[in-house]
Simulated scan of single mutants.
Amino acid sequence: NLADDERTDATEFARSQESLQSFLHRQALSLRLNENDQAALRFLIESLNDDGYLEDSLPALASTLAGDDNDQFDELVHHFQVALGLLQSLEPVGVGARSLGECLTIQLRELAHANEDSDEAQVRKTAIAICKQPMELLAKRDFKRLATLTRSNEDEVRAALQLIARLEPKPGRRFVDVERNVVVPDVIVTRIGNGTNARFRVMLNPDVMPRLRVHDIYAGALKQHKGEGSQALSQRLQEARWFIKNIQQRFDTILRVSNAIVERQKSFFVHGELAMRPLVLREIADELGLHESTISRVTTAKYMATPYGTVELKYFFGSALGTETGGNASSTAVRALIKQFVSAEDIKKPLSDSQVSEMLKEQGIECARRTVAKYREALRIAPANLRKAL
């Protein structure tokens, strides 16, 4: 078993309604880090998904902060690499992994102990070797293939798979609280009119906007204060006003970006996700005269309430796939089609990725089998053989 005391600690914290991020930040306080490494670790913790995985690569995370500054980019990647090692040493074991294989491997290495006998050590070694193989083989329980790839016998593979089955594939699972994860939209889009005359009004959600102002009494007192320290007090007043102005500018930018998104994705607001058009961050950045990294920050963890539900602003961005007519189809729309095909399939004969690719081709969309597989995995849809088994 994984260290029972560690598992209990994590569970107790979860029951006390503490989030995964808060639990990790509390542990990070005990680490003696310099300011840069501390900031990098804090950033990685905040970048984890609900399952405790780091979905974005370290270079991708660094580029969102560094922009076009190559020197700063290299420095950030270095700090993130140090921080990743620290993050993966925290509880719950397996947190901070970038893939299922890495998550399971971290947990298996944690199982090593001084009294481990040779048989236990061999099973654990085999399990680690299995986790380096494609996860499809693990899901299929392909003992022969796994035995060949790991240079083990089938009995060792069976024992290793039993060990792996006791691990936690989603380290952050026990911290998830549905009530705490209710999304409050930052922007609300309402429909005005019907049919081709339909318009959409975009407004900021007043519930998420902080009501900030410098109280007139304090501002007046500071202006009249001419004695010792008046300069320092005036500076504080100016800083407060700049802070309020920056907050207002931030929400103004969110509103500008949201308006630009609604204008370009009007078909989505009329017809739904199947009508989504290709859109990249640079298009919005160029239109608004902002840097691409600014658009990236504004659209991350910011949500819009639409006639089709509440979605993250990043949802509206997707790459383009070619069509027979020479036009482009949005990857978001293609994912929606794949989801539609799978939901309507015969459960006795589920569709393979190749069949879905052919069906998309019939719709005039060029989408290779490998691309279908990537989109299917992003939608958390199991492969055909496992859908049939389920």
Rank of each mutant, 00 (worst) to 15 (best):
R42C: 10
E102P: 04
E91Y: 13
A112M: 02
L87F: 06
G67Y: 07
D119Y: 10
S99H: 08
I45A: 03
P92Y: 01
F80A: 01
I128E: 13
Q107H: 07
N115D: 15
L84Y: 01
E35K: 12
D71K: 09
T126F: 06
L86G: 01
Q38H: 15
N36C: 05
A60M: 11
E110Y: 15
Q38L: 13
P59M: 03
S89E: 07
D117N: 15
E110H: 15
L90W: 01
H78A: 10
E35R: 12
L48C: 12
L48K: 06
L61K: 10
L84P: 00
Q72F: 12
N49L: 05
A97C: 12
V82A: 08
D37G: 00
D51M: 05
L104N: 03
L86E: 05
N70F: 11
T64P: 01
T105L: 03
E120D: 12
G94H: 08
R98K: 12
T64H: 14
V82F: 08
V82W: 01
Q88D: 07
L100P: 03
E116W: 04
K125P: 00
G94C: 03
F43V: 10
L100W: 01
R109M: 12
E46A: 15
Q81H: 08
A62S: 09
H79W: 12
H79K: 13
A62W: 10
R109G: 08
Q72R: 15
T126V: 15
N115I: 05
L86H: 11
L65M: 15
I130L: 14
L48S: 06
L100S: 09
S47G: 01
A97L: 13
T64N: 15
E91P: 00
E102V: 08
D69C: 01
S99L: 11
D50M: 11
E75G: 11
S47C: 11
A83F: 07
V95D: 00
L90P: 04
D56W: 01
L104R: 05
T126S: 13
S99Y: 07
N36H: 11
L108N: 08
T64M: 15
A66F: 09
L104V: 04
Q72A: 13
T126P: 04
G94K: 01
Q122M: 13
D117Q: 09
S47R: 07
I128G: 00
L41D: 00
L54R: 02
A127V: 06
S99C: 11
R124V: 04
H113N: 15
S47T: 04
A129C: 09
L54M: 10
Q38C: 08
P59C: 02
V123P: 00
L48G: 07
P92V: 03
S118V: 12
D68W: 02
D37A: 11
Q122N: 10
A129L: 14
Q81A: 13
S57K: 09
Q107C: 05
Y53W: 03
L100F: 02
L41Y: 02
G94Q: 04
G85R: 09
D119T: 11
L41H: 06
A39M: 09
E35P: 00
Y53D: 05
V93H: 11
G101Q: 05
D74Q: 04
A62D: 05
V123C: 01
F80L: 13
A83P: 05
D69H: 03
L100A: 10
T105Q: 10
E55K: 13
L87R: 06
A129Y: 04
L48P: 06
N115S: 14
S89V: 00
G67I: 08
Q38D: 14
T126G: 02
A127N: 09
